[in-house]
Simulated scan of single mutants.
Amino acid sequence: MKKIVFLVGVLLFSALGTTQAAGRAAEIVAGVSAAFRAMKSYSVDFEVTMGEHRMAGNYAVCGETYRIVLGDAEVWFDGKTRHEIDNRRKEVTLSNVDPADRNILNNPVRAFDFIDSEYVPSLLRERDGEAVVLLEPAGDSGMPAGSVTLVVATATMRPRSLDYDFDGERVTVRILGIEPLRKALPAFDRAAFAAYEWIDFR
């Protein structure tokens, strides 16, 4: 009888711990999302690692528009059309943006806005002022299979890194700095790329 009581107690304690961890994960995600929602325009320095390749970049967000600079590539989004510019190949590719996409390289406006998204957060660990939250697509969400691991400095609710794992393909984005945008984001200058080849995938 004592063994049964002990086992029930362990199960109840485990369930309570799981519930508390889920609540804390949601709280952390809400804190990060709220911090970015409060900023109307900002600039983020980051570093991308994929396998043995590492590259520094920057993106700037102003409302629903953004610009990304990563190596020889630039991306401009004017709120309607995404312009991907390959300055090495001298190509401009036009495409639409999925507003539900949370990938920082595809849609930085929503990169840290996981509230009311199709991702379910769970707390992997929290210690020494840092929390690690796993975000997994809900089973019936229709989101691509894969997960996002978010590392957050809990004192400021600022993200430190994002690790994307889609079907074994891992991309890690380390956040190097976040600053308010000091001047308005310029509009995309189509004339500056008149000599480039234009490819329209819209």
Rank of each mutant, 00 (worst) to 15 (best):
L134G: 12
L134Y: 02
L134A: 15
L134V: 05
L134C: 12
L134P: 01
L135S: 09
L135P: 11
E136A: 15
E136Q: 13
E136V: 15
A138C: 06
A138P: 05
A138L: 11
G139I: 10
G139Y: 06
G139D: 14
G139K: 15
G139C: 07
D140Q: 11
D140T: 09
D140E: 13
D140S: 14
D140M: 14
S141H: 03
S141Y: 04
S141E: 07
S141Q: 09
G142H: 06
G142E: 03
G142P: 12
M143E: 14
M143A: 15
M143N: 13
M143I: 04
M143H: 08
M143P: 00
M143F: 12
P144S: 09
P144K: 02
P144A: 07
P144T: 04
P144W: 00
A145V: 09
A145Q: 06
A145P: 00
A145E: 08
G146E: 00
G146H: 00
G146S: 03
G146L: 03
S147Y: 00
S147C: 02
S147P: 00
S147Q: 09
V148T: 03
V148I: 12
V148Q: 04
V148K: 01
V148N: 03
V148A: 04
T149Y: 03
T149D: 06
T149N: 07
L150V: 07
L150P: 11
V151D: 08
V152G: 12
V152W: 02
V152Y: 01
V152R: 01
A153V: 10
A153I: 05
A153F: 01
A153T: 11
A153S: 11
A153G: 08
T154K: 11
T154S: 10
T154H: 03
A155P: 00
A155G: 14
A155V: 07
A155H: 04
A155F: 01
T156A: 15
T156V: 12
T156H: 06
T156C: 11
T156R: 13
M157Y: 03
M157N: 13
M157D: 08
M157V: 02
M157K: 01
R158Q: 15
R158L: 15
R158N: 14
R158F: 10
R158Y: 04
R158D: 11
P159N: 05
P159T: 04
P159R: 02
P159K: 02
P159H: 03
P159Q: 06
P159M: 06
R160M: 15
R160P: 00
R160H: 05
R160K: 15
R160V: 07
S161H: 05
S161N: 04
S161P: 05
L162W: 04
L162G: 09
L162N: 03
L162V: 11
D163I: 13
D163G: 08
D163Y: 01
D163N: 13
Y164A: 13
Y164S: 11
Y164V: 10
Y164D: 07
Y164M: 12
D165Y: 01
D165N: 13
D165M: 05
D165A: 12
D165P: 00
D165R: 03
F166D: 05
F166S: 13
F166H: 11
F166Q: 11
F166K: 11
D167T: 09
D167F: 05
D167H: 10
G168C: 12
E169L: 14
E169D: 14
E169W: 03
E169V: 14
E169R: 14
E169G: 08
E169A: 15
E169T: 12
E169C: 10
E169Y: 10
R170V: 14
R170H: 09
R170W: 00
V171R: 08
V171F: 02
V171M: 14
